[in-house]
């Protein structure tokens, strides 16, 4: 079990580091029987390798693969960000928040800005992904062995869409029965299922991206779209911060009101968690995007 955890930990290292030292690290683990402390050491090493990338290993990855790695990381960040963003929408969609928005223009402005940027970013995700999806489908037609891998991300999206459809249908059929704690539990389960589907989608897309040959211009186009999505995530996180600060300043009772799926925490605490996740995802996206551009500038 520890050995398997150690192997999995290696996947957390940056692509360039894995290409340069991955085989040696595996050989080292094969030669010893790693203890849990070695797994922790690998996790710490992976974090350090991400925080302090080395120029010596960056040459192990060409700009195409670097862009692939950056794009899959951008997608992962977007999925995480979207989950927090949906939480934000769910937290602030009720009538009292609309009324507060009418009374305080900063709240309304930040809320509208978040929604507009989110729509634009979703468009950029589609614009970046569609050419890659077309390339993957074409390749899968010629190479049947790829079909299962290529069908994984759309399958995950379809499953999530189906679950969402079911949730909406049930909520509309008997709204009175699905309020309070049971509704909250269903919502939480839906959110976790969404994250699981998102993880499958990201991992499948990443694996497909590395095996499907894609013309460079398509990769660059998709990477530019990913950069726009990264900028959008940063802008949305800032707008959310403005919203949260203004809510505390101008509508403190609303910020203190109970919120969340089980009404266990306050609106302010929910917003703080959502904002933290958004900032984390946006920061990771900015870091990986910078690496992609650096690699592009080198070649």
């Amino acid at each position: 079990m520890t050995r398997r955890l150690a192997d999995w930990s290696l996947w957390l290292y940056p692509l360039a580091f894995r290409r340069r030292y991955g085989e040696e690290l595996r050989a080292l683990l094969d030669g010893s029987s790693p203890r849990p402390v070695a797994v922790l050491d690998l996790l710490r090493g992976a974090l350090a390798a991400h925080l302090r990338p080395k120029d010596t290993v960056s040459g192990c990855v060409d700009s195409g693969d670097r862009m692939r790695a950056s794009m899959s990381a951008q997608l992962a960040c977007w999925v995480l960000f979207a989950a927090a963003g949906f939480g934000f929408y769910n937290t602030t969609e009720d009538a009292p928040f609309t009324a507060a928005g009418h009374a305080h223009p900063v709240l309304a402005g930040a809320h509208v800005a978040i929604q507009v940027i989110a729509v634009l970013a979703s468009g950029a995700v589609l614009a970046g992904a569609l050419p890659l999806i077309v390339a993957a489908l074409n390749q899968a037609r010629r190479q049947p062995g790829l079909r299962r891998l290529v069908s994984l991300p759309p399958l995950a999206v379809l499953v999530f869409a189906g679950l969402t459809g079911m949730l909406v249908a049930v909520a509309h059929s008997e709204p009175a029965r699905h309020t309070g704690s049971s509704g909250g539990i269903v919502f939480l389960a839906w959110g976790l299922a969404g994250l699981a589907c998102g993880a499958i989608c990201v991992l499948g897309a990443r694996a497909a991206l590395f095996v499907v040959p894609v013309p460079r211009w398509r990769l660059v186009t998709a990477f530019v779209c990913g950069t726009l999505v990264t900028a959008a995530m940063t802008a949305i996180a800032l707008a959310t911060a403005v919203y949260a600060i203004d809510l505390f300043a101008d509508a403190a009772p609303l910020a203190a009101s109970a919120n969340g799926p089980l009404q266990l925490v306050s609106t302010g605490a929910s917003l703080a968690v959502q904002l933290t996740v958004m900032l984390l995802a946006a920061t990771l996206a900015v870091t990986t995007t910078q690496r992609g551009w650096r690699a592009l500038a080198r070649n």
Binding site: D41, L42, G45
Partner: peptide, 24 residues
Amino acid sequence: LGPGTLYGALSRLEGRGLIEALPA
């Protein structure tokens, strides 16, 4: 030395030109 610490150090030293890798 744990495996992560060891290869972190090797990577750092290689980057600073203090050690070099030989053929595998």
